[in-house]
Deep mutational scan, measured.
Amino acid sequence: QYKLILNGKTLKGETTTEAVDAATAEKVFKQYANDNGVDGEWTYDDATKTFTVTEKPEVIDASELTPAVTTYKLVINGKTLKGETTTKAVDAETAEKAFKQYANDNGVDGVWTYDDATKTFTVTEMVTEVPGDAPTEPEKPEASIPLVPLTPATPIAKDDAKKDDTKKEDAKKPEAKKDDAKKAETLPTTGEGSNPFFTAAALAVMAGAGALAVASKRKED
């Protein structure tokens, strides 16, 4: 009698068979294992007439167990938060979910874009303008004329002030004479000065007065 010990991944146990020799028993056991989907390494112990079949655990490639991950970057252009961060993800969709959660946790809500070549996400917050509040242009400074500094008044001594007054009066006198001369030139000519009769009478009076003066002097002599 021969014995078979099964150490399979899905089947474990023992069974026996009657055979004329070990070779015949081995054929029977291998057919049995094959029928039950057991495929492994076989050993035989002649002392105990025991066969053992052991399935090795399937070696799984690490790449099959853990999907390949890629590093993705997020650029934040927020109104109050600006910067960059990264995450590792199996695909862009997974990275996007992580980045949007990160942005939401930090109060950033804007327009999202993605560049597959650089594996970069960008979120930009738009500045909202309040309706009716149009931007006002800064007032242009008016052209200013530079002020001319005033010349301080120079105090005048009393004596100098009197001299100035005297000079002013002396300066006025010639001007007054000139005014009188002008008035004389502009006076109208009277009839006496221009009538020949009056001129002859005046000469006769003057001659008579002269003769009287000569006669009076002779009497005195």
Rank of each mutant, 00 (worst) to 15 (best):
Ile5His: 11
Gly8Lys: 03
Asp21Phe: 13
Thr15Val: 08
Glu26Asn: 00
Asp39Ser: 15
Val38Ala: 03
Lys9His: 11
Thr16Cys: 11
Gln1Trp: 13
Leu11Ile: 06
Leu6Glu: 03
Gly13Asp: 03
Lys30Arg: 05
Asp45Lys: 13
Thr52Ala: 10
Asn7Leu: 10
Asp46Tyr: 15
Phe29Thr: 03
Gly37Gln: 07
Ala19Asp: 05
Thr50Lys: 15
Thr16Val: 08
Ala47Gln: 12
Glu55Leu: 03
Ala23Asn: 15
Gly13His: 04
Leu11Ala: 04
Asn34Glu: 01
Ala19His: 07
Gln1Ala: 14
Ala22Arg: 03
Val38Lys: 02
Asp35Ile: 13
Glu41Lys: 14
Leu6Val: 12
Gly8His: 04
Lys49Pro: 06
Glu26Thr: 00
Asp35Ala: 14
Trp42Val: 00
Asp21Met: 11
Asp46Glu: 11
Phe29Asp: 00
Gly13Cys: 05
Leu11Asn: 04
Lys12Tyr: 07
Ala33Met: 08
Leu11Thr: 05
Glu18Val: 14
Val28Glu: 05
Gly40Gln: 00
Asn7Met: 08
Leu4Gln: 04
Leu4Thr: 07
Ala23Met: 15
Tyr32Pro: 01
Thr15Lys: 08
Val20Gly: 11
Asn7Arg: 13
Val53His: 03
Asp39Pro: 06
Gln31Glu: 03
Lys12Gly: 08
Thr24Ser: 14
Glu41Phe: 14
Leu11Pro: 03
Ala22Asn: 07
Asp46Met: 13
Thr10Val: 06
Gly8Asp: 03
Asn34Asp: 01
Gly37Ile: 04
Thr54Trp: 08
Glu41Cys: 14
Thr10Lys: 06
Lys49Asn: 09
Leu11Phe: 06
Glu41Gly: 14
Tyr44Gly: 02
Trp42His: 00
Ala33Ser: 08
Thr54Arg: 09
Val28Met: 12
Glu26Ala: 00
Trp42Cys: 01
Leu4Met: 06
Gln1Cys: 10
Gln1Arg: 14
Glu18Leu: 14
Leu4Pro: 01
Asp35His: 11
Val53Pro: 01
Glu14Pro: 04
Leu6Phe: 06
Glu41Arg: 15
Glu14Cys: 12
Ala19Cys: 09
Asp35Gln: 13
Lys3His: 08
Ala19Gly: 09
Ala19Gln: 09
Ala47Asp: 11
Glu14Asn: 08
Val20Arg: 14
Lys27Arg: 06
Glu41Thr: 15
Thr17Pro: 02
Thr24Phe: 15
Ala33Trp: 01
Asn36Lys: 04
Gly13Pro: 03
Thr10Met: 05
Tyr2Asp: 01
Asp45Phe: 10
Val38Thr: 04
Thr43Ser: 11
Thr50Ser: 09
Asn36Ala: 05
Lys30Ala: 00
Thr15Asn: 06
Lys12Gln: 09
Asp46Ile: 13
Val38Asn: 01
Ala23Tyr: 15
Gly8Met: 04
Thr48Val: 11
Ala47Leu: 13
Thr54Ser: 09
Lys12Phe: 09
Thr48Gln: 12
Asp21Ile: 13
Tyr32Ile: 05
Thr16Asp: 06
Leu6Cys: 10
Phe29Tyr: 06
Ala23Gly: 15
Thr52Phe: 07
Gly40Arg: 00
Trp42Leu: 00
Glu41Leu: 15
Thr43Arg: 12
Thr52Val: 10
Gln1Pro: 13
Glu18Lys: 14
Gly40Val: 02
Phe51Leu: 04
Lys12Pro: 04
Glu41Gln: 15
Lys27Tyr: 02
Asp45Tyr: 10
Lys30Phe: 00
Lys3Gly: 07
Leu11Tyr: 03
Thr50Tyr: 14
Thr50His: 15
Tyr32Ser: 04
Glu41Ser: 14
Val53Met: 07
Tyr44Cys: 04
Asp39Trp: 15
Thr24Gln: 14
Ile5Gln: 11
Glu14Trp: 13
Thr15Ser: 07
Tyr2Ile: 05
Glu26Val: 00
Gly37Arg: 06
Thr50Glu: 14
Asp39Arg: 13
Glu41Tyr: 14
Val38Phe: 05
Asn34His: 02
Tyr44Arg: 02
